Simulated assay, not measured.
Amino acid sequence: MIWKFFQEYKIWYSMYALMSALYFLSFYLYHLPLGYFVVSLLFNLTLLLIVTIWLFIQFRKKLLLIQNFFFVQDLDDLSLPSELAYQQLIEQLLAAESEKGLVEKSRMESLQTMVKMWSHQMKVPLSALSLMAQTDQLDRQEVRQQLLRLENYLDTLLTYLKFSGNKDDFRFEVCSVRELVVDLVKKYRVSCLAKELSVEVSGDWQLKSDKKWLSFAISQILDNAIKYSKRGGHIQVQLDEDGIQIADTGMGILPEDLPRLFEEGFTGYNGHEHKKATGLGLYMTKQVLDKLDLAIRVHSQVEEGTQVFIYKEKS
């Protein structure tokens, strides 16, 4: 601590030594009696020692206070302008840290809620598979459908975790959106066959984007179209240079639910009524499309169907 003290006040002691040397030089050049200089130096050194002791006590008290304080109020004894500025800086840092902690706590609580919700959703297909296994009534098509639901739930949850952790791995390249859609239709063919749905894909859209993330966004729209379509319905995917339109002849969306479709955790009437929604699919779709510089628009009428448009906004 003594070394720290002299480090803080070294400029003053250096100035005192320099002034003493200048006084000695003056006495020497003018041939003045050096005895007077020695007496004066001893007197000044005595005064300097007293001041040093007082300054060291104050320095030690301040240093211990700064090192061991728990609350900002403990620093109220600091009174120098520089010390007050330091105290104000600590208050700002603590406030920022507290706000950051609240945001992180809120994020963790939201994440825990979503994981619990997801766990509940995943129990449905798991229970169906378990029941089929216990009764030895394993229908191949039904098993594939339940496994596809599990895969979709898991993919969406992993995507949510990646976005909530601010991690992304976008790689932009020119791709055929038609090829992505065709691959997704093949992926969902079991679900389409189970509900006797017909799917029509027309046109193409050459777009510079990330294949993986764009495929994820489209898969969420297509999954919803299949999920909420009536048996024997029809899904049409139309692509052109302006974008992609996915239209179904399902149950539609209530007008009051449309403005909130992309809110985190919002399921709407259909989700509550049919217990098929987690409220993350469309939310994540919007987040991904925003990262890809794409826009999404939804038109829907109850009992007539829904049209979802994904397009690149013109600058």
Rank of each mutant, 00 (worst) to 15 (best):
L131Q: 15
I226V: 14
S110Y: 09
G265I: 05
K105D: 13
R107N: 15
W3M: 06
L148A: 13
D204W: 00
I226W: 14
L75Y: 15
V51I: 13
G305F: 00
V190T: 13
L47N: 11
K162M: 14
F5R: 01
L197A: 05
V298Q: 03
T285N: 03
G101R: 07
I11M: 07
T52M: 02
P81V: 13
D77E: 12
E151I: 01
M108P: 00
K105N: 13
I310D: 04
I2K: 09
A128Y: 09
Q58T: 07
R260A: 06
T306D: 07
K100M: 14
V143T: 14
F37Q: 03
I218V: 13
P125S: 07
L65T: 11
F59L: 05
F70Q: 05
A85N: 11
Q236N: 05
L29H: 04
E273T: 10
D240Y: 04
D74W: 06
L280E: 07
E264R: 06
L45K: 04
E241L: 01
L93Y: 10
L180P: 01
N270G: 15
S300F: 00
L148N: 09
G35M: 04
K162A: 15
T278D: 13
A85L: 12
K275A: 14
M1G: 15
A96E: 11
I50D: 08
G165V: 06
M108R: 07
L49G: 13
Y311H: 12
L280V: 11
S110W: 10
D74L: 02
V302Y: 06
A17W: 08
E173P: 00
Y23R: 05
T159A: 14
V237D: 01
L41R: 02
Y9F: 15
L280I: 13
Y36G: 03
L258C: 08
I218D: 03
S79Q: 04
L214C: 02
R144T: 10
E304N: 10
L64I: 05
M284K: 00
Q134G: 04
V51S: 08
M122L: 11
F69E: 01
A277L: 11
V174T: 12
Q301F: 00
R189S: 14
F56E: 03
L294V: 06
W118D: 15
S198I: 10
G101D: 09
K187N: 07
S209K: 03
W213R: 08
Y23F: 15
D169H: 12
K212L: 03
S215P: 02
L41V: 05
A96S: 14
G250M: 05
I226A: 09
M284P: 00
W118N: 13
